[in-house]
């Protein structure tokens, strides 16, 4: 059998990458924070999470749509299931669809990815059933549009201009299309609420939308809307981890300034 020495040399035989030790410690620490806060939440149900204006406005948007007899347009981002932002979009829609079902207004969810569409369809059906309104679910309200970025934008913009939804909600991962969508929505006079984990797209949403969830607020939204203690515990764990990150960065900065860059290098590894 022919064997190449060169190929054998390039094959990695390590069972752990030491350059990623910092990430492993971070994940384990975060998991510990999560477990501690879940136990805290079970013992004490009144955990405080600061109000987020954009999420409070979701109720206002649904109410407005109901009063005007128009729909709520929910754009779940242009990513697939490998993006955590897409999962955040799914969990927010699940909560939002429950409120929409209770209020009795129409929902329209154009999808970019067929897998996301399938998952969203199931989540929205479940949301309607959960609040006892399975009859109010309109088959086809979650529908596939296109996996081409600009074709998707053209279709959604057309929907905004023809159907004039009372509220446009953009949640998930967005790219160059963010401003094209949000600016078209702004011209229709709809109330617009956006949230994305893509830092480069945030300024566009801030310019064109009434409310914008900045970065981590997107991930906290599901817990905030659900108000379930265990979900809120994850938001508090996130805050604890942020405090640890701030302390670690400050310590690394001070040590590096004093001529000891080891901590800074270790944090930057991987």
């Amino acid at each position: 059998m022919l064997r190449s020495e060169a190929v054998d040399q390039t094959l990695d035989t390590r069972w752990f990458d030491p350059a990623r030790l910092n990430i492993l410690i971070g994940v384990l620490l975060f998991t510990a924070f999560l477990v501690v806060n879940i136990f805290r939440a079970r013992a004490k149900s009144d955990l405080y999470v600061r109000p987020i204006a954009g999420l409070k406005a979701l109720d206002e948007a649904i109410g407005r749509a109901t009063e005007m007899g128009r729909s709520v347009l929910y754009v779940p981002g242009l990513s697939d299931m490998s993006e955590v932002g897409t999962f955040a979009a799914i969990t927010i829609l699940y909560r939002l669809a429950q409120r929409i079902a209770e209020m009795g207004c129409d929902l329209d969810v154009p999808c970019y990815d067929p897998v996301v569409m399938t998952v969203l369809d199931g989540a929205v059906r479940d949301a309607y059933s959960k609040v006892g309104r399975p009859d109010a679910f309109r088959p086809g309200c979650v529908h596939y549009v296109s996996a081409q970025q600009m074709a998707y934008v053209a279709a959604v913009n057309g929907t905004m201009l023809r159907d004039r939804p009372a509220a446009n909600v953009y949640m998930g991962s967005f790219y160059a299309e963010s401003l094209l969508l949000a600016e078209t929505g702004a011209t229709t006079g709809a109330i617009q609420i956006a949230g994305t984990d893509k830092v480069t797209q945030l300024p566009f949403f801030v310019c064109a939308c009434d409310y914008t969830l900045l970065g981590e607020e997107l991930f906290a939204a599901s817990a905030y809307l659900g108000r379930e203690p265990v979900q809120l515990a994850t938001v508090i764990a996130q805050d604890w981890a942020k405090a640890v990150a701030a302390i670690a960065v400050t310590a690394a900065l001070l040590l590096a300034s004093l001529g000891h860059p080891t901590l800074a290098s270790w944090l930057r590894a991987a």
Partner: peptide
Amino acid sequence: VGVGLGAVSTALKIILGIERSYLGR
């Protein structure tokens, strides 16, 4: 930093079964 922690939090919620809305019916 907030996005990174939020992403880890969401991933852990899904892996540990705390967040189940994506499962549908």
